[in-house]
Computed example of a mutant assay.
Amino acid sequence: MKSSRIFTRTALGALALSLSATAFSADWRYAHEEYEGDVQDVYAYAFKEHIEENSDHTLEVYRFGELGESDDIMEQAQNGIIEFVNQSPGFSGAWLPAAQIFFVPYLLPTDEETVLEFFDESTAINEMFPELYAEHGLELLKMYPEGEMVVTADEPVTSPEGFDNKKIRVMTNPLLSETYNAFGATPTPLPWGEVYGGLQTGVLDGQENPIFWIESGGLYEVSPNLIFTGHGWFTTASMANKDFFDGLSSDDQQLIRDAANVAYDHTMEHIQGLAEESLEKIQAASDEVTVTRLTEEQIDAFRERAPQVEEEYLEMTGEDGAMLLEQFKADLEAVR
């Protein structure tokens, strides 16, 4: 097992706690959840490049494990230890329930062109979410998609019955657990650092992630059956500590907004075709990999279970969730 896959939360937490603001050499710091060359890393370095080319500021980027796992870096950002953080709603959904909207299955289409247009034009994404994040001390810079979610398992699955009793790792948010309950599986919330080992030892029977992450993290090595269920896209968000951001000059605030826009445009170009390239790499690396793309009839068997997840979302989020879901659907209808 590669060393990057055997971090434990305890070890990572100890690493993060051993650092202080004075330990950093750059004046601004940005931490994300992925490895070198992955989508969040591409975004972070495009952001860094714009900042440094257009100001006297320097920005240090920290990848997965360097300051801890997703929950660790979010805590550091909210406490002002680092200025910028990238975290998926898959983790922030625990403290921002409305963000779990991205885990209502079959709400987002899987067509890449439609998804990208939706993120560009959505009122829910670009106007409503910034207000929700601000309530938690965060300046939302950009929400952006990374790729279609793909399930890997210990055997090919083509129906909800195929997930019976399978322990599927999910990110630590309640609605994603509800999704896999609806699909017939046993959802198992775990931080990323425990996933590879859990699949390797049989503690887990499967997991879900975009295909580039399945390739980058080597998950296909221990969970070789890829299942395209068409149920959603992986979404993430870049943010700044709000006290930090609000205390900046108007010029620096605009610098950061411009950097976020530049990084977003660059990253949206990067992800086009990325899934196909990653799948080709996986298939070239392993003869054990199988690829199952569900037919529309097979997808319908999963899709008909989605309404119970949507109902659970509304129960979890109340009026805020209902308003967001209504706008989300209107935005999707506009781009379809």
Score class of each variant (00 low, 15 high):
Ile6Leu: 14
Arg9Met: 14
Leu15Cys: 03
Ala16Leu: 10
Leu17Arg: 09
Leu17Ser: 13
Ser18Tyr: 14
Ser18Arg: 12
Ala23Gln: 12
Phe24Tyr: 13
Arg29Met: 06
Ala31Val: 07
Glu36Ile: 09
Gln40Glu: 15
Tyr43Ser: 04
Glu53Trp: 05
Asn54Ile: 06
Ser55Asp: 05
Ser55Arg: 09
Thr58Trp: 01
Leu59Phe: 05
Leu59Glu: 04
Gly68Asn: 01
Gly68Ser: 12
Ser70Asn: 13
Ser70Phe: 08
Ser70Tyr: 01
Ile73Lys: 02
Val85Trp: 04
Pro89Thr: 02
Phe91Asp: 10
Gly93Pro: 01
Gly93Cys: 09
Ala94Asn: 08
Ala94Ser: 12
Phe102Ser: 00
Pro105Gln: 05
Tyr106Lys: 02
Thr110Tyr: 00
Phe119Met: 07
Asp120Tyr: 15
Ser122Lys: 09
Pro130Phe: 02
Ala134Arg: 09
Ala134His: 09
Glu135Lys: 14
Glu135Ser: 07
Leu138Gln: 05
Ser159Pro: 06
Glu161Thr: 08
Arg169Asn: 11
Val170Ala: 09
Met171Ala: 14
Met171Gly: 11
Pro174Ser: 12
Leu175Gln: 03
Leu175Lys: 08
Leu176Lys: 15
Ser177His: 05
Ser177Asp: 14
Glu178Thr: 13
Thr186Tyr: 00
Pro187Gly: 06
Pro189Cys: 07
Glu194Ser: 13
Gly197Val: 00
Gly197Asn: 14
Leu199Met: 12
Leu199Val: 14
Asp205Ser: 02
Asn209Phe: 11
Phe212Gly: 00
Trp213Leu: 07
Glu215Pro: 03
Glu221His: 03
Ser223Gln: 05
Leu226Phe: 07
Leu226Cys: 06
Phe228Glu: 12
Thr229Gly: 03
Phe234Lys: 04
Phe234Arg: 01
Ser238Arg: 00
Ser238Asn: 10
Asp243His: 10
Phe244Leu: 12
Ser250His: 08
Asp252Ile: 09
Ala259Ile: 10
Ala259Asp: 02
Ala260Leu: 11
Met268Cys: 12
His270Gln: 13
Gly273Ser: 12
Leu274Ile: 10
Ile282Asn: 04
Gln283Ala: 00
Ser286Arg: 10
Val289Tyr: 04
Leu294His: 00
Leu294Met: 10
Thr295Ala: 11
Thr295Asn: 11
Gln298Tyr: 08
Ala301Asn: 12
Phe302Val: 13
Arg305Lys: 15
Leu314His: 08
Glu315Val: 14
Gly318Ile: 07
Gly321His: 06
Gly321Phe: 04
Leu325Ile: 11
Phe328Trp: 15
Asp331Gln: 10
Glu333Asn: 13
